[in-house]
Design a protein around this nucleic acid. Structure first.
Length: 261
DNA sequence: ATGGTGGACAATCCA
């Protein structure tokens, strides 16, 4: 079973290379972030024609937006945090999928350390943990938290930790919240398979030749509870997609699990 | 050098 996460930075702009990617990898689940499209304009039909099931939640303004593409019909779907579903739906989708709980989120970037948006980001990470703790058991649930978490949790996850510190994606506050999630029971599936530093998932468009110069960040994650993490067999960043026409500033990250699909 | 590029929508806002 192959599960991927991809901040596509506009699904409409990325439709051509994304359809090719789906056809090549035939994943079971793809979590998308920053679809940047209202629900009425989501390119549902093309994906359906290729045989995919799609759930999505966007905004009329064209900001944020998340979606999940699946090979089979999901068993259950919910949007946003239960206490505030309307205001949080464009950043969070939860699927029950063939014995797995899959949570796709686009964590707020945070703007700057002194901005109210940064407090919103910290509260988002706390609400994620609260959501999991109320509903799931880390030792029993096959839970995957995936998406653009906007957290580079260690110095191995940014090109120059000391240079960027403190950054909204790489500072004490967000790293502490990330650790609370891992202490609760979520394991970093990427790090299980890729121990070396310098493998990234995001490169700022504004930095010239950022990919070649390895000036990236690892902010897109697949975190799994032990029953799921222990059956992962591989994880990779698909940098091939980055050399296509009109790439996103993020690359897809995918993990394979020895499981039914 | 408070820049740079790309995407949303249609003057700026966000990453």
């Amino acid at each position: 079973m192959l599960i991927a996460t991809f901040n596509c930075n506009s699904i409409r702009k990325r439709m051509q290379i994304f359809r090719e990617w789906l056809g090549h990898h035939r994943p079971d689940v793809v979590a998308l972030q920053e679809t940047k499209v209202s629900d009425s304009s989501f390119p549902e039909k093309e994906l359906e024609e290729d045989g995919w099931h799609t759930v999505f939640a966007g905004e009329e303004t064209g900001r944020n937006g998340v979606a999940v593409i699946t090979k089979h019909e999901p068993d259950d779907v919910s949007f946003g945090f239960p206490e505030d579903p309307e205001n949080t739906r464009s950043r969070l989708i939860h699927l029950s999928y063939r014995g797995h709980e899959i949570v796709n989120t686009y964590v707020p970037q945070g703007k700057s350390l002194d901005a109210p948006e940064f407090q919103f980001k910290l509260s988002w990470l706390r609400r994620l943990l609260d959501f999991f703790d109320r509903r799931f058991s880390p030792q029993e649930t096959k839970l995957l938290l995936t998406g653009d978490l906007n957290v580079a949790p260690t110095e191995e996850d940014v090109h120059d930790s000391r240079k960027v510190w403190p950054h909204v994606c790489h500072c004490r506050g967000v790293i502490d919240e990330f650790h609370k999630l891992t202490e609760w029971g979520l394991r970093d599936v990427f790090r299980k398979h890729i121990p070396q530093s310098g493998v990234y998932t995001f490169w700022d468009y504004r930095v010239k030749n950022a990919v070649d110069r390895k000036l990236g960040w690892r902010v897109d994650h697949l975190l799994a509870t032990p029953p799921l993490a222990e059956i992962s067999s591989d994880c990779f960043v698909d940098t091939a997609m980055r050399i296509k026409e009109k790439p996103s500033d993020h690359a897809p990250v995918a993990a394979r699990f020895e499981d039914f699909s």
